[in-house]
Nucleic acid binder design. Structure first.
Length: 628
RNA sequence: GCCGGUGUAGCUCAGUGGCAGAGCAACGGUUUCGUAAACCGUAGGUCGUCGGUUCAAUCCCGACCACCGGCUCCA
């Protein structure tokens, strides 16, 4: 697929801004409170820094923010002072008063105050729409509302400034950067304190932290490079298990596996249409002279004839390679659908500030496949792909997800979208039909399709509230033609196949990053890097023999097992195993040896009692096989 | 890429313009312990990198790198 590492998650945020005045009246109480806090914040900042230029101050899922432009650079040291002023304002119990102004009045107001951003915001309001203002105390703001009745409705102890950040005016990087103050507020002080505790819990679930604690992955920006993850042995287990799951699932769904190199000639990406548009997101090319010598290091002798230079690019997506596999042999309609699968490694030069743990990296392994099919086969193939998504979600206990169905905008055919109005309509109808029939929860987003066809992105929320696109499923009715891909149809004519790009498990990097937070590192048995540890109480020889036998038996059944036969007290061994998040601990002493049992303890679930040895082993093996 | 913050042992963090510190982990002993931490000892560092100020810089100044929080971007 080609838009893998997907996360168009911010689009929804701006929806908040687009709500009409009527819709805004229905905004819930917490949002009103927070929006009012944004005004209180602006009031406080103006009192402390009267020269501040104001932009806007909406509420967010987490709280609120307000954007300012001023000489003074905010630092967290300013927070107590600002918070103090905000508390004062709540105690002044100012009324939020709404008024409607004419456009001229509004303009005159902001011109008098010298608020240039506000004048631009004013110009955004469509003709004919009411221009409303809210005033609390001395502070007047252009604002659609809604607000609480009085500043006193906000409890002084339930406000907290969180951080200072910067943001481009109107979110455009060509515009000036403003200083954004983020804060949050709750109905009560208890709610706020509770939220702070939850934030601390969330920090402990951060995949970067757990990844280091458990020895799953590492970054070595000195020697390897930023955004290039190293999988340590325990993280490698997660990679292998996911790949095994994908391979089994895809095998049963009739996929065939291929393998392709990590780079290709420039011509590949010119043909696919990715160059020159996306060259900036790719690593710079390697340039080779005709004879294979590195072009850049050769100082050309004066008068030497120019040498032919070939450019190779690290691949940022797998589809072109798969297209060339399709092209490698003559194809008949009898070969379709052809489902080419590969865990392909792609490289994308993400901007430095965009890198984020495993979630946003520069090298990634994609659960990719391209399904080449006829128009008649399309609906069935697309449905099967969706079912595969749902199967995976069940396995991972993933119930909070949303599918975003991105469609084209007919007015931009031939520009943003390939000019095939009938194909667009046809494929979009088919996709919509499949979604409705499967009873899947989805939203439709116009104008966000890929240039070559409609797509579905799957958004998930990790346990700590991070939202991102984990998977994608795209229809492509354009690029196969650019590569001249055809099959010979029943009627003996050459036809161009449709192509479905799909990556239900996204990339290893992001998917595992997500799973780490989803499970808080407490993986189910089948995924756990350390599935079983045998802990001995005492060092008598018969006991050690018994314990070693158990390890041997489990290992022969491919269970990831290790023994802790050292001299530490059992309490210490258990503490070690718990800290390492070993899924199942088998604690054995002489008592167990005599009874032929093992004492089972599950990570973070405590002791489970004794079970006959053979039964315990069989249970572990079957749980793993059934991916529990 | 942009704005701001941070960078001291494997990890969590103290600290000072004049010989670099703790806890945990590691390693070596002692301990033989029944479900989250027995005891003693040892070792561990170019204080992110480079440059400047200074008799002297981990500390002050500058640049760079990396990471963190945002913004932008994400085929």
């Amino acid at each position: 697929m080609n838009q893998n590492d997907p996360s168009q998650f911010d689009a929804a945020k701006s929806d908040v801004q687009r709500k009409t005045l009527e819709q805004r009246d229905q905004i819930d109480e917490l949002a009103r409170l927070r929006h009012s806090c944004a005004h209180i914040l602006a009031t406080a900042v103006l009192r402390l820094w009267p020269d501040a230029q104001l932009d806007i101050g909406p509420w967010t899922d987490e709280g609120f923010y307000y954007d300012f432009d001023l000489q003074h650079r905010f630092t967290p040291d300013d927070f107590p002072k600002i918070e103090e002023e905000m508390r004062k304002i709540t105690k002044e119990n100012q009324v939020f008063e709404k008024s409607i102004k004419t456009r001229d009045e509004a303009r005159a107001h902001f011109e008098a105050k010298g608020q240039r951003f506000k004048l631009e915001r004013l110009a955004d309001i469509p003709e004919g729409e009411a221009i409303s203002f809210f005033q609390n105390g001395e502070f007047v703001d252009l604002c659609a509302g809604p607000h609480v009745m009085r500043t006193g409705n906000v409890k002084p102890g339930a406000i907290k400034l969180l951080r200072v950040a910067s943001a481009y005016f109107r979110g455009n990087e060509k515009n000036p950067q403003l200083q954004r103050l983020y804060g949050t507020a709750f109905k009560t002080k208890d709610d706020l304190e509770n939220w702070i505790k939850l934030q601390e819990e969330a920090k402990k679930r951060d995949h970067r932290r757990i990844g280091a604690e458990m020895g799953l992955f590492a970054f070595d920006s000195d020697y390897v490079g930023p955004g290039l993850a190293l999988w340590l042995p325990k993280g490698g287990v997660l990679v292998e298990e996911l790949e095994r799951l994908a391979k089994e699932t895809e095998f049963q769904a009739g996929y065939v596996r291929v393998r392709t190199p990590h780079l290709a000639k420039e011509k590949m990406y010119k043909t696919s249409g990715h160059l020159p548009y996306y060259a900036e997101s790719m690593f710079p090319p390697m340039e080779l002279a005709e004879d294979g010598a590195p072009a850049a290091t050769e100082a050309a002798p004066a008068g030497a004839p120019p040498r032919h230079v070939e450019r190779y690019y690290l691949k940022a997506m797998n589809c072109p390679h798969h297209h060339r596999i399709f092209a490698a042999e003559p194809r008949s309609y009898r070969d379709l659908p052809l489902r080419l699968a590969e865990y392909g490694t792609c490289y994308r030069y993400e901007q430095s500030g965009e890198l984020f743990g495993l979630m946003r990296v520069r090298s990634m392994n994609m659960n990719d496949a391209h399904i080449y099919c006829t128009a008649e086969q399309f609906a069935e193939e697309f449905r099967a792909v969706n079912e595969m998504y749902l199967k995976y979600f069940r396995i991972f206990g993933l119930d909070r997800y949303q599918m975003r169905f991105s469609t084209h905008d007919p007015s931009r055919l031939g520009q943003k979208f390939v000019n095939e109005p009938e194909l667009w309509k046809k494929t979009e109808d088919m996709v919509r039909q499949v979604l409705i029939e499967s009873g899947i929860n989805y939203i439709e987003v116009p104008n966000e399709a890929a240039f070559y066809g409609p797509k579905i992105d799957v958004q998930v929320w990790s346990a700590i509230g991070r939202e991102f696109t984990i998977a994608t499923n795209q229809v492509d009715f354009a690029v196969p033609a650019r590569f001249g891909l055809t099959y010979r149809d029943r009627d003996n004519t050459e036809k161009t196949p449709l192509c479905i790009h799909r990556a239900p498990l996204g990339t290893h990097e992001r998917f595992i990053g997500f799973l780490i937070e989803h499970y808080a590192g407490n993986f189910p048995l089948w995924l756990a890097p350390q599935q079983v540890r045998v802990l001995t109480i005492g060092e008598e020889q018969p006991l050690l023999d018994y314990a070693k036998g158990i390890v041997q038996e489990l290992r022969s059944q491919f269970v990831r097992v290790e023994g802790d036969f050292g001299s530490n007290p059992i309490k210490a061994k258990i503490a070690d195993a718990e800290k390492a998040r070993v899924h199942t601990m088998l604690v054995i002493g002489l008592r167990d040896l005599e009874a032929g049992v093992v004492s089972v303890r599950l990570h973070s679930k405590g002791p489970q009692g004794a079970r006959p040895k053979a039964e315990a082993i069989a249970g572990i093996v079957s749980d793993i096989r059934e991916r529990r």
